[in-house]
Amino acid sequence: MSESGVPPSLLAQRDALLSKLCGASWPFGVLYRALNLAPSADLLDIGAGDGALGREFRRLGHTGQVVGLDPQPSSAAVQAGRTERLP
C-alpha cells in the first residue's frame, strides 16, 4: 500500500492508462516538459519508490543531481527517509 493508501498496482494501472491516452510516458515525460527545468538543476523526488522519475529524467537528458527519497525504497538508487525528517 502506498502512503496515499492506494495500492501500487492501481497506481501502475492509472499511469498506463494515462500514458496511452496522452501518447507519452506518464507522468514523467509530460511532467519533465511541463516543469521547464534547467537541465542541470538539482532535483529531490519525495516518495520516489523505485526511482523511476529520476531514471526517466536522465533518459530525457537531465544532467543535474537527482536524489530520490522514500520511506520504503524499492531500489538501491533511492534513499530511505521521510519528508518530515530529511536526511
Rank of each mutant, 00 (worst) to 15 (best):
M1V: 12
M1A: 12
S2Y: 03
E3H: 06
S4A: 13
G5N: 10
G5H: 11
G5L: 11
V6S: 05
P7A: 14
P8Q: 07
S9K: 13
S9T: 13
S9P: 02
L10W: 13
L10T: 05
A12V: 11
R14F: 13
R14T: 11
D15A: 11
A16Q: 10
L17Q: 14
L17R: 13
L17A: 12
L18V: 07
L18Y: 07
K20T: 08
L21P: 01
C22P: 00
C22Y: 09
C22T: 09
G23L: 02
G23W: 00
S25F: 07
S25P: 00
P27A: 08
F28K: 09
G29Q: 12
V30E: 10
L31C: 04
L31R: 02
A34G: 01
N36C: 01
N36H: 00
N36Q: 09
N36L: 01
L37F: 08
L37E: 05
A38D: 04
P39D: 07
A41W: 03
D42T: 08
D42V: 00
L43P: 07
L43S: 04
L43F: 06
L43C: 12
L44Y: 02
D45M: 08
D45N: 07
D45C: 11
I46W: 11
I46A: 13
I46R: 13
I46V: 15
G47V: 01
G47E: 02
A48D: 05
G49N: 02
A52G: 10
A52K: 14
L53E: 04
G54M: 02
G54Q: 05
R55K: 14
E56V: 11
F57E: 09
F57I: 10
R58P: 09
R58V: 15
L60I: 09
L60Q: 15
L60V: 12
L60E: 05
G61L: 13
T63D: 13
T63Q: 15
T63L: 12
T63S: 15
Q65H: 12
Q65S: 14
V66E: 12
V67T: 14
G68V: 05
G68W: 06
G68F: 05
G68H: 06
D70R: 03
P71M: 01
P71G: 03
Q72C: 04
S74I: 04
A76T: 09
A77Q: 11
V78T: 04
A80E: 12
A80S: 10
G81N: 04
R82Y: 08
R82Q: 09
T83L: 15
T83F: 15
T83V: 15
E84Y: 07
E84M: 08
R85A: 15
L86G: 11
